[in-house]
Structure formats: C-alpha cells, structure tokens
Amino acid sequence: MPRYVRARTLDEALDRLAAGRWRVIAGGTDVFPALADGQPGREDMLDITGLAALRGIRFDESARAWRLGALATWTDVRTAADLPPWFRALKLAAREVGGVQIQNAGTVAGNLCNASPAADGVPPLLALDARVEIAGPGGVRVEPLAAFITGVRRTTLAPDEMVTAILVPDPGRPGASDFLKLGTRHSLVISIAMVAVVLWRDEAGAIAAAGVSVGSCAPVAVRLGALEARLVGQPPGTDLAALVHESDGDALSPIDDVRASAAYRREAALTLVRRSLARCGEAAA
C-alpha cells in the first residue's frame, strides 16, 4: 500500500529518501497535474512542506548569496521587500507563473526540479548564476543551476537527495535585470519563448558582466554566451539591442509544437532579447 509521510525534520526526510523510493511533494502544482489519470495515492509520497527550515528568503552573509529556501513560493519572491533591484527578472517571472493560486502554492525550487523546458524560474536564475543546494546521505553539495538541469525533466538529483535551497550570489556591484515571457494569451501562459537579462555595472557604469538566457527554445534554457561576451565592456548609453546578432540564435534548438513553430521561436527569442536588453539598459543607465 503506498505511503504518505509528512517529514518533520530534514534529517527525517533524508532518512526516508535513503531508505526507499519516494516522490517529494511541496507545492504540489506539478505533482498533481502529472498524476496518471488524475488519481492520487498510487506511489509513496514524501511531503516536505512541514520543514520550517526550508522556508523563507534571506541573505547568507558567509556565502555572499541570497538564499531561497526550497519551500520559498513564487508569492514569497514576488512580495519579498528586501531583495535588491537586480532580482527584478525573477520577480517578473514570479508574477507570470500561473495565477495567484499557483504562485501561492508552487515553489521556485520545485520549478527547477520539475525541469520543464518552459520552467519560468530557470531563465532568470540561470542569468543570475544561481546555484542549487542539495542535501543527501553524503551531506550537502552545491551545484550551478546550469549543471543541475540536464535535459527535459532531468536533473542531477539522485533518488536519495533533495534540494534544500537556491543560492543567488550577490556580486556586490550595481545590477539590473529583466524578464519577458511570450505567449498567446494574457494569463496562465506556458511560454512560446521567454528571456531573462542581467547586467552588472562597474564604477564607470560600463557593463562588467552580463547574463542572457532563453527558455522554451531548447530542452533546457540556454545562456547566450557570445552575446554576453559582446555586452561586457559596453559603456553606458550603448544601444545594446543592436549588439544582438542573428547567429546568437544558433545556441537555440527550438521545436515545432502546438504553441508555435521552431522558426518563429528562434526569431521571437532574439526579438525578446533585444527588447529586454533595451529595458535593462534604460533601467541601469
């Protein structure tokens, strides 16, 4: 008979994971829709929503990083008052994950673990160089998000591991970020394409580092490294959109599906990148 356990401590959760095959459930917004013919109660479920230590968003001084506990919801991100302005991309993404019902329940960490090509959280966090903190029987490991998601609905998470936090490093310089999501309707959109842009500035206002990522246009969201390299060193006031080359789309491998054609996705993604760079450039200049 399938089991359901609501873990009281992280250690208990890890002990359970070490002892058997469990499906971890937090917000439930991906678990429930994926149930075979909608019927719950057929596999062992480990509910981690009781783990208070995994809640909240705070700055971790020692890591010089913002720590989003694994139970931090989209609403937590959206309403967090103390996040620096360069979190804007993630906050914008949080506003567009489903409706308020989904934002109140769904967790950012769950979005990463679900590893959908259209996961709204991935492009912003990828552009922000986020890392994933993972606990397992051997202790805690931290892995760059770029390495954590390995394919469509695939991650490096072992069956006996669980994500405990997302770490977003604070490089200690001024930054600005932006997020754009394209769909066919206003709300409840699974994106055709989405982009996140993060620009870090040096003392002179020139771009010191850049993150540009595109989602829904490849099995895993991708960063446009060549474009990022082109952006670095640009002085304030540069027309950043003009730096986007058609060849930047070569990093994408979009597919045709019911939402859009592959050709459209590639073109639209670069259009969104140009627009996002322009918005970001204005914000930071």
Partner: peptide, 19 residues
C-alpha cells in the same frame, strides 16, 4: 476550486489532505 488556505487563494485540487 479556489479556496483560501490560511488566508491565501490556492487551488484546492492540488492540496493533499495529509497536510
């Protein structure tokens, strides 16, 4: 199926009874 769970709107179809 929206209900308020501890004051916040959620889809009740995705809240497991066990919690």
């Amino acid at each position: 199926c929206t209900v308020l769970l501890d004051g916040a709107p959620v889809c009740a179809c995705m809240v497991p009874a066990g919690r």
